[in-house]
């Protein structure tokens, strides 16, 4: 259960959302060292550590912005767990680590785990979405990409030299086959 109380460290999420340079710098000052040591101690390089730290902060930004993530626990263990999960996932991809057991329920610091799990779950889904997207035909990819970038669909139709009606119909079909592919992958 995630408690509805927002932790005072939610200000770090707010700082990411606002691109508050002073507080973002504070995040690096306070937490970069811990993550750096962890990654270096677990067969990573300086660049790996810098990537994981930055990508995790961007993941958290995306969650806060698009999924209304609210911090109900201290920021540091949450960030450590997000980075750690991301790094273990990366090691797995590189074939350097056996599959680690997922943490699904824990009675201690459950907010931290629940929130980190949420971030990781979303990140996994996003990977599946993009992998399935890449398997679509070129026409579908182009149409979906352009429509998702935003902007007027009539202009997009003109750019692609098709009628507006065709664009809508095609986008609909492409999204339907993409969704079916995603569904199959997620149910595997």
């Amino acid at each position: 259960m995630i408690s509805p109380l927002i932790h005072k460290d939610h200000r770090y999420l707010q700082a990411l959302l606002d691109n508050d340079q002073r507080v973002v710098s504070e995040i690096y000052d306070q937490y970069a060292g811990t993550i750096r040591r962890y990654i270096l101690a677990n067969s990573g390089t300086e660049d790996d550590a810098a990537d994981i730290f930055q990508e995790s902060l961007i993941d958290i930004y995306n969650q806060a912005k698009y999924k209304a993530l609210q911090l109900t626990c201290p920021f540091e263990p949450f960030l450590v767990l997000v980075c750690k999960r991301k790094w273990l996932n990366e090691l797995k991809k590189r074939g350097r680590q056996p599959v680690t057991k997922e943490i699904d329920d824990v009675s201690i610091g459950e907010d931290v785990f629940a929130l980190a799990e949420q971030v990781k779950g979303q990140q996994h889904k996003m990977e599946v979405f993009l992998q399935c997207f890449e398997k679509l035909g070129d026409t579908c990819k182009e149409i979906i990409r352009k429509c998702m970038e935003g902007g007027d669909q009539e202009k997009i139709a003109a750019q692609l030299k098709v009628t507006y009606g065709y664009l809508r119909k095609k986008k609909s079909e492409c999204m339907a086959s993409l969704t079916q592919m995603v569904q199959q992958r997620l149910h595997q």
Partner: peptide
């Protein structure tokens, strides 16, 4: 910040 806190090329 990345350059200040992490080494590497």
């Amino acid at each position: 910040l990345r350059q200040a806190h992490f080494g590497g090329g």
